[in-house]
Computed example of a mutant assay.
Amino acid sequence: MATERDRERPQERTAPRIRLDLPRDRRRRLIPEYDPEAFGRLSERIARFLGTGRFIVWMTVIIIAWVVWNIVAPKSLRFDEYPFIFLTLMLSLQASYAAPLILLAQNRQDDRDRVTHEQDRKQNERSMADTEYLTREIAALRMGLGEVATRDWIRSELQDLVKEMEERRDLFPYEPSYRSDEPDR
Rank of each mutant, 00 (worst) to 15 (best):
Q109A: 09
R7E: 15
D113P: 00
N107W: 05
W153V: 09
R179I: 01
A47F: 00
E132F: 09
R48D: 14
R29A: 08
D80I: 00
L161P: 03
W69F: 02
A38C: 04
D80M: 00
T150A: 07
L30P: 03
R169C: 10
P83C: 10
G51T: 05
I56E: 15
E137S: 08
P100W: 08
I46Y: 02
D110H: 14
F49M: 05
K163Q: 11
D35W: 05
R121W: 06
T14W: 10
V68S: 03
R142E: 05
E137F: 04
E132V: 11
L93W: 12
S76N: 10
A99R: 13
W69M: 07
D113Q: 14
S96G: 04
A99L: 15
R155C: 09
P16W: 11
W66H: 00
E44I: 00
E182I: 05
M165Y: 10
E164G: 11
Q11M: 07
E4F: 02
A105R: 01
K163R: 14
W58I: 10
R54C: 06
Q119D: 13
Y133P: 00
E166L: 04
K163D: 15
D21R: 03
E166H: 04
L89G: 05
A98D: 11
P83L: 08
E164A: 10
